[in-house]
Structure formats: structure tokens, C-alpha cells
Amino acid sequence: MIRFQNVYKRYASGRDALSNLSLHITPGEMVFLTGHSGAGKSTLLKLIAMIERPTRGQMIIRGQNVTRIRRKKVPHYRRSIGMVFQDHKLLFDRSIYDNVALPLVIAGLPDREIGKRVRAALDQVALLGREKRSPIELSSGEQQRIGIARAVVSKPPVLIADEPTGNLDPELSLEIMRLFKRFNAVGVTVVIASHDLGLVEQMGHRVIRLSGGQLAGAERPDGSNAR
């Protein structure tokens, strides 16, 4: 599903964020990325999201070599990747409904279809019935659930999340992680970057540890793949 082959990423500042990174995430897998800040977690996710381009190496995602994908093709590519951010990246001047509907509006779906899917997505994150409200009225945990609803509303095969629980207390964090687990259970490939090692271990999935932009080790606790 996601394959990195000898990927390097050097920023314009000269900092090497990733060096010679190779990894493979199989379809339907749920994977955690851990490591200190600056280890390359965010960069790895940005590469998957095509927010950044690799300096060297190959990236094959969903069977397509996207290393040198043309700029014009990036938007369409991004529609197959659901993204969740630590700061949610919601639009506070729009209703919850409009926030979640955005990917479907972009995809050009008819309004009726959008309505159905938005309500289904909000139902999955337990926020149904609040469509008309502004995200600003909600708590941080709830805002993150809107972000997740927006990420999954177009049913992307891949879901990536960068520190999705970074601002949440342990209880809410667990709730969010369970949510991801449920999406993974229906076949979505999930990649989550988190520095919360305790929480990550609790989830029981493959953990990819990064250090200085390189693979520091991968572990697969027993039974994790079977969920």
C-alpha cells in the first residue's frame, strides 16, 4: 500500500529530515510512527500527503510511483488520502456540516449524496445532530472528531494522522485511537504518528520507530495484525 525505497528528504535549510528510509506498509494495516520530535515522523507523513517531495528515493503508494507525480495531479491524489492533524485544521467560519462536506464538494458529488455521507461520517464520530453548529463551540476532543469525520467522509483507502491526540487528555486520546481502530477494522490503511508511547503500546499494532530520519526499529506485538 505504502512503500518507501531509500527515501531521502533534505529541506531547503539543509536539514536532513529523512535519510535512506525504506519501509512497507501493507493494505489494511494499522501502523504507528514514533520517535523524538525531529526524528522524521511528520516529514514521512508529509511525503505521503505530497505536502513535501522526497529529495531522493522512490515512493510507491497504492501501486503508483508518486515520486515525481506532476503538480497538477496532486489534488486528485490527495483525495485518496484522509488526513488528520494535531491542530485539526478546521474552518471556523463554516458549520460543522460544511467542514465535513468539503472533500465531497471538491469531489463534485451531488448535494443529496453529500448529505447522506456527511451524516454517516458524523454518526461514526458520535457528533450527529450538531451539523449546523460552528466547530468553535466544541471542545478540542470534539473538534478532533470533526477532523476525523472530514478525513473519512470520502472513504479514502488510506488515513494518516499526525499527533492526533497531541492536545488531548489520556481518556480522550484513547477514544480517538479507538475511532481509528474502527476505521482500520473495515479495511482502511491507517498510519498514525504519535509520541505517546504508552498509548501506542496499548493499541497493539506495528510500531515504526524513527530516529534521526532513519529506521530505529520496528516491532509487531503478538496478535496485532489480527486486531
Binding site: 483525495r79 463534485g108 449524496e113 482502511v188
Partner: peptide, 23 residues
């Protein structure tokens, strides 16, 4: 759970897509 992976555009007739576009 309705979140089966797949393209968001499948199964929607062209005429409906065109209408949605103009709308």
C-alpha cells in the same frame, strides 16, 4: 460502519454529476 474504502465518485450517474457541477 460504512467506511468501506473506495472512490467517492463511484455509482453516481454522469447526468447527476453534471447537475451537481452546475449547481
Amino acid at each position: 460502519m460504512a467506511a468501506t474504502p473506495g472512490s467517492a465518485k463511484k455509482r453516481i450517474p454522469l447526468t447527476q454529476q453534471a447537475r451537481a457541477y452546475f449547481l
